[in-house]
Design a protein around this nucleic acid. Structure first.
Lengths: 342, 342
DNA sequence: GAGGTGGATGGTAGCGCTACCATGACGCAG
DNA sequence: CTGCGTCATGGTAGCGCTACCATCCACCTC
């Protein structure tokens, strides 16, 4: 006889089917799956056998509705193609892959408004945690995060006044360290070249400025920025602009490695000697910077580790074990290479 | 008097609250939101007012449970940091951002087993559509896709026998076109350098081989591959290996642009003239290939467009308007540049 | 031996929404 | 004027799960 299946269910086994087969109550099956230690070993085995035989998989939607909590991490990044965020995402992903949490992705396109919209969309779903890039949320976004009712980790940067938790490093210090290094290596007309100029880039610029001013070398004409999205192509163009504006330029600290690579290629093309005539420093230290010719000095940032750490903190908070220190600074490392070895 | 709120609900307004405020039945609210044309304009306005006033947002979990369909696109890619897939993902994301569909991400790490596991996890959720990279699913994965009960789009490649729909291009043809170009430009000892060697890379290699054989130039010693994940660093190392193995090498067709860049940098470092002594062709045509010095010939692949198209096809299928032709070949374009201009 | 305690198990009542099936009003053909 | 489709609206009954509370059964304490 055919079991009368309801109109909607696709015929998948439900928790009631498992319970029937195992000869226990549905709630015991639910517990055996979620808190095995609260069920006697005997029943646990019986239930597991029934689960295996039926190929039962719990319906995450029903679970989310009943428990008012979805097993979902909402992740908001400003860009999917910027390899910096791709690596953060990879770190998040890898740390979550052997849990039952799913990842729901949001791309803010560097827009505060878009971030607000996405938080509005993510909220009603009651995610288990939210991981958002950056610390410069709009007041609305901040309120949405505060009232989300789940752990929130702001990543990529550290700063005062976290919504909940933070993992990152100081972009200001990174920019300053890179610039100080160049000054130390004998570059005195060091330019800053930056694209996109999101808040993190702004802080790298501030670090650059602080270092230059401390050395009495700051000159506004050395700074070349644009709100246009960053690319290697753009790096080349900005470098040309920078040279036109400040012909005595003897080095550049670039916003990021894409820009630095563009500068490097343009130097090759224009037969400008690196590091002799122009020194180059990048930011992030992508894989290729070490291989480039000449190899390019860059500020190594712990992107993958930021992803992993953010998940670890969120999971701890979910488990009720909030970390003592809600703000974690993972630092950075200046990689000195040929492009600044004058 | 305080309305008695249940233990679980976080106090968010529900559809019943909206219905009460608008003086209609809950089901009418539901309809007004999902199929506005089926509700009279009068009520529609009233309901909208109530929604706005209460700040009502439907609970996606309840919706998914009741309708046995989640507004989620499951997306499976083999890597998050490979910029090729990042761009596909961006295309998918951009095409979905003004719909109410959410994106749930899966990273298969180029593993068929992992892909199976992820499909198992995605299935019970009843996603609205699945987009998976590649056409070489395991039999188990294939069955999971066929029984998913939603549109499925295989992306990045075209081939016979789609599970449902496909968007991509021929990697074999791409590899062949690149190789033929090099032969035409006078390179006769053209090597193949490949890392990772996933199925798509294998087909590029097959295309290379076909072109070399057709010209009577194939020599197994010209082929250098490794299962190790691709990187610029690895490109340099593989190129060294290739040169050691075949000192008369006069050109290389690289598996992808990262490898090509590694080769280019190594040529600079070892003072090997490009394109005179060694010609270089890459694959994918990342932004930087045009800017590199010398600029690098590459096969431009429509990655972003693949993402967009896959979503368009899936949305059409959801709306019941399946495309006539389930397999879409978006082609590729060989970009001839300085690195092969002998 | 009465009463207490704690651990294992189960029943019931939702979670917030939508599928399904009325219901009632209206227009129109006969 | 009757009968019947058509359209807008609503009521009811779940979707598959879990929170909450009750129950039951050792096992103990005094």
């Amino acid at each position: 006889m055919i079991k009368p299946r309801s109109r909607r269910g696709g015929g998948r086994p439900t928790i009631a089917d498992v319970a029937r087969k195992a000869g226990v109550g549905a709630i015991t099956v639910s517990r055996a799956l979620r808190e095995p230690e609260r069920v006697s070993e005997d029943l646990r085995r019986q239930i597991q056998a029934a689960v295996d035989e039926l190929g039962y998989l719990p319906d995450p939607n029903a679970r989310a509705l009943a428990s008012a909590r979805a097993e979902v991490f909402g992740v908001l990044v400003p860009s999917l193609t910027n390899s910096v965020f791709a690596e953060v995402l990879r770190g998040i992903y890898d740390s979550l892959s052997d849990s039952s949490f799913r990842i729901q992705l949001g791309n803010t396109h560097y827009s505060g408004l878009e971030e607000e919209r996405l938080l509005q969309v993510f909220g009603p779903q009651r995610p288990a945690a939210l991981i958002v890039a950056g610390i410069d949320q709009t007041p609305t976004s901040r309120r949405l995060l505060e009232t989300a009712g789940c752990p929130v980790v702001q990543v990529m940067e550290t700063g005062p006044d976290p919504v909940d938790m933070m993992v990152g490093f100081s972009h200001f210090d990174g920019g300053r360290a890179a610039t100080e290094h160049m000054i130390e290596m004998g570059y005195h007309r060091v330019g800053f070249i930056g694209a996109r100029m999101d808040p993190r880039s702004q802080r790298r610029l501030a670090g650059y400025r602080a270092a230059m001013e401390a050395a009495g070398l700051f000159d506004a004409r050395l700074v070349t920025t644009t709100p246009v999205p960053s690319s290697v192509t753009l790096g080349r163009e900005l470098f040309r602009d920078a040279l036109a504006k400040a012909p005595t330029l003897d080095g550049v600290f670039c916003n990021n490695d894409d820009i630095a690579l563009g500068v490097l290629f343009e130097c090759h093309r224009a037969s400008i000697a690196v590091p002799k005539t122009i020194g180059i420093t990048g930011f992030n230290d992508l894989d290729m910077m070490e291989v480039a010719f000449p190899s390019v000095t860059s500020v190594r940032t712990p992107r993958y580790e930021i992803g992993r750490r953010s998940v670890a903190m969120a999971l701890a908070a979910i488990a009720g074990k909030r970390p003592q220190e809600p703000v974690v600074d993972l630092g950075f490392e200046l990689k000195r290479r040929e492009s600044t070895a004058r």
